[in-house]
């Protein structure tokens, strides 16, 4: 009897692997990539506004970060997906998730970028001015690349955290990996095996990202090596 169960279980796990991985590739990864890209744009702009002490906009940036970091991601998802329809704004599950994850992640990454910008010595900016470059030219070519190098490990960390956070999108009916697993559990009654299975797939994704992180760090740190070539 136990042996029969095991064979059935193994067949279920093999069978469900593809059915969980597929939404992973078509939903979880696109959601992460799209939302993180928007988050980075938001983060760089928000951080630069604060770094340059732009009036009013700096206040707005602080307010944005304060609100987003002070409220749960799940609540933010619910407000946008279930709440906004009260105002007549109805957004499909996937775009709603993209919007919320972008805005949420943007606030955290903005803080990482701000700290990284502030860690670049002021002499770098002054040297840019003195060779005749403008603020934006120096920012783009000198200060931001150096800040990116500093921020890279923390940003990678955020990205990895985000891959897993996308499972919260299941709560607003996005059929990503976790939701797909739940659906299989609903008829197969094998929660332990299946939830471990989806956990392992998340682990697989994150392992790839960790690997990419170390490759990226090596590439970015070219100019930090001390000593001859």
């Amino acid at each position: 009897m136990i042996r029969f169960m095991n064979e059935e279980l193994i067949r279920l796990l093999i069978d469900s692997f593809g059915r969980i991985l597929l939404p992973g590739l078509t939903v979880t990864i696109p959601l992460t990539v799209i939302a993180f890209s928007f988050a980075m744009i938001i983060a760089v702009i928000t951080a630069m506004i604060q770094f340059a002490h732009v009036k009013v906009l700096t206040q707005l940036a602080r307010f944005y970060i304060w609100v987003v970091r002070g409220t749960p991601l799940l609540v933010q998802l619910f407000v946008v997906f279930y709440g906004l329809p009260n105002l007549g704004i109805v957004i499909d599950p996937f775009p709603a998730a993209v919007i919320v994850f972008s805005i949420n992640e943007g606030a955290y990454c903005a803080e990482i970028m701000r700290a990284a910008l502030e860690s670049v010595p002021s002499g770098q900016m002054e040297a840019g001015y003195c060779v005749g470059m403008s603020y934006l030219q120096t920012m783009r070519r000198i200060v931001l690349p150096q800040a990116m190098r500093t921020a890279f490990p923390s940003l990678s960390n955020s990205l990895i955290a985000m891959v897993k956070d996308t499972s919260l999108a299941a709560n607003i009916t996005v059929v990503e990996m976790f939701m797909a697993t739940r659906q299989i559990v609903a008829w197969s009654y094998q929660p332990l095996a299946l939830y471990i299975e989806v956990g392992l797939i998340y682990l697989m994704f994150c392992t790839v990202l960790t690997k990419l992180q170390s490759i990226g760090e090596k590439k970015l740190s070219v100019y930090e090596k001390v000593g001859g070539k």
Binding site: P121, G123, Q124, Y129, G132, I142, Q146, Y223
Partner: peptide, 18 residues
């Protein structure tokens, strides 16, 4: 500034450039 050059005490070379 484009008509002048400036040499700093602590060099301030762009660290991310050769």
């Amino acid at each position: 500034r484009k008509k002048t050059g400036f040499v700093f005490q602590n060099y301030n070379l762009f660290r991310n450039k050769t």
